[in-house]
Design a protein around this nucleic acid. Structure first.
Length: 269
DNA sequence: CCCGTGCCCTGGCGGC
DNA sequence: TGCCGCCAGGGCACGG
């Protein structure tokens, strides 16, 4: 489940690998990934050069000549670069370059999305126009004001990309552990100091994970040969029944908003 | 507006 | 060994 650190790792790798490539053709084997009309998409993207790859929250943004391609990997989306190899079952979209190389979008669950938007308006268009700032850019006082109006669990708030972007299930669990706050605490009971602690912890977790190339939990394949190393640094996530690194209490697993959630019942309250 | 639920998908796994 | 049914979850549509 790529979150900010994994998406940033993919962004860096892709920019080095395919910056300056020119797209000559797109072949779709499962067109629902592309949210535009497929005919319009193919027409607009033809002969566009990849100038730069940006990222906002969990979205990758390919900067082309006149358009941008906004990509969300959702649960299992990943990219591979290949030349003259048979197309595999889950390689749904193939971008063919002038050089002969191909960028292939691979996604077993088919949850990912690719959207082409004009360069002039993409920031003001859906989906980026709805996206909140990342933890490093969040204003604590504004964040605290939002929390005070929310009568839902703090974990649900941190997963909401319209409130703060970049965090997903893994890094919310880790952020709340560092903050010593229980994920079921209602948002409107969080104090200003605690709100500040949450943002500070989120920045710390995301920075460290990004430096380590993200987290690789499902290791059967990795995008572009990138293996993250943050899984070795996880304090609570995926550690049910293992001892808390601070107090040795057994980590418990619970469900919040349908998400598997890991908590130290002693450190977090 | 606010919040909860169901849906999209398929491989992997537990149970028998 | 094989098959069935359920689980994983980010973000959105929908409904109360």
């Amino acid at each position: 489940m790529p979150e900010l650190p994994e998406v940033e790792t993919v962004r860096r790798t892709l920019e080095l690998a395919i910056g300056n490539e020119e797209i000559v053709e797109v072949v779709e084997n499962y067109s629902k990934i592309i949210t535009n009309d497929i005919f319009e998409f193919k027409k607009s993207i033809q002969n566009q050069k990849i100038h730069r790859i940006d990222r906002m929250g969990k979205y990758l943004i390919f900067i082309l000549d006149t358009h941008t391609m906004i990509i969300h990997l959702r649960m299992e989306g990943k990219f591979f670069i290949k030349t003259n190899e048979p197309v595999l079952k889950h390689e749904h979209i193939v971008f063919k370059f002038k050089s002969g190389r191909e960028l292939r979008y691979h996604d077993v669950r088919k949850f990912g999305t690719i959207t082409l938007l004009p360069l002039e308006t993409y920031l003001e268009s859906y989906p980026l126009n709805k996206l909140a700032l990342e933890p490093k850019d969040i204003n604590i006082h504004k964040f605290f004001e939002v929390l005070q109006k929310k009568r839902i669990e703090i974990k649900a708030v941190l997963l909401d990309q319209h409130i703060v972007s970049g965090l997903g299930n893994i890094y919310v669990d880790e952020t709340l552990f560092l903050s010593k706050i229980h994920p079921t605490r209602l948002a409107n009971t969080i104090s200003l100091d605690e709100a500040a602690k949450i943002i500070k912890s989120a920045i710390q977790v995301l920075d460290k994970a990004t430096a380590l190339g993200g987290t690789t939990i499902r290791s059967y394949t990795s995008s572009l040969g990138v293996h993250g190393r943050f899984q070795n640094e996880l304090n609570v996530h995926m550690r049910k029944d293992l001892p808390c690194p601070i107090c040795q209490t057994k980590i418990i697993k619970m469900k919040i908003k349908g998400r598997g959630t890991y908590v130290c019942p002693s450190c977090q309250d």
